[in-house]
Amino acid sequence: MFLVIRVRGTTGVIQDIADTLDMLRLNRISHAVVVEENPSYKGMLQKAKDYITWGEIDAEFLSQVIAKRGRIVGGEKVTDEYVAENSDYKNIDELAEAIIKSEVKLADLNIKPVFRLHPPRKGYEDIRLSIQEGGSLGYRGENIVELAKRML
């Protein structure tokens, strides 16, 4: 699974890329989504690479994100009690494991698929350059966790 975070805003976005960002549900800066690792999503990530950053996450970090920034439709926080009542899983950790294994989706449990994060502490690196050039955009691999921790 990939964690995808929008880094840049809407000014001057080409329509095709704007549509791709809408399909990924990344409507604002510092919003994050979890997407499967398949060719369809990889193509979308490549198309929007000048506006987003992404990388692989593990179940442990995903459970932290869900616990801290996850919201139920209606605005309530996601709790272990909610997960136990509305799913086959006992707590958020088990739910995160199931999401990583693609057994269940957040929307199936009435949990919003978008995580609204804070801007990162110490700021982004240059938001016009890719990771290889010393910026913030593009594929980060495992380093996405470091950025996301600064945003929780």
Rank of each mutant, 00 (worst) to 15 (best):
M23A: 15
I14K: 15
R116K: 14
R69C: 07
Q132G: 15
S136F: 04
E60C: 12
R25W: 07
I52N: 00
V4Q: 03
A98P: 03
L3R: 01
P113H: 08
P113Y: 05
G138E: 02
R69M: 06
L117A: 05
A107E: 14
Y82W: 12
D108W: 09
I14Q: 14
E37D: 15
F2M: 08
K77V: 12
Q132C: 15
E36C: 11
I5F: 01
L45S: 01
N27K: 10
M151R: 05
Q15K: 14
R128F: 13
Y41Q: 10
A148R: 00
E94Q: 05
S130E: 05
I72V: 12
Y51R: 01
E146S: 15
E56N: 11
T53V: 07
N91V: 04
N27V: 05
A18Y: 08
A67W: 09
A32I: 00
V65C: 02
V145C: 04
V7E: 01
K101P: 07
G75Q: 12
E133C: 09
D80P: 02
E94G: 03
S102R: 12
S87P: 03
R116I: 14
K105C: 15
E76N: 14
A107K: 13
P113G: 07
I131T: 04
M1D: 07
D58I: 07
G75C: 13
T53K: 03
I144T: 02
I100E: 01
A96V: 10
E56H: 08
P119F: 01
E103G: 10
Y89H: 06
Q132D: 13
Q132Y: 15
I17T: 08
R128T: 13
I99T: 03
A84V: 11
F2E: 08
E37M: 13
P120A: 11
I29Q: 04
D88E: 14
G138Q: 02
L45Y: 00
S130R: 04
L62T: 02
Y41H: 09
G55T: 00
D58N: 14
I52Q: 01
S87T: 08
F2R: 04
I127L: 09
T53R: 00
K42P: 03
W54I: 01
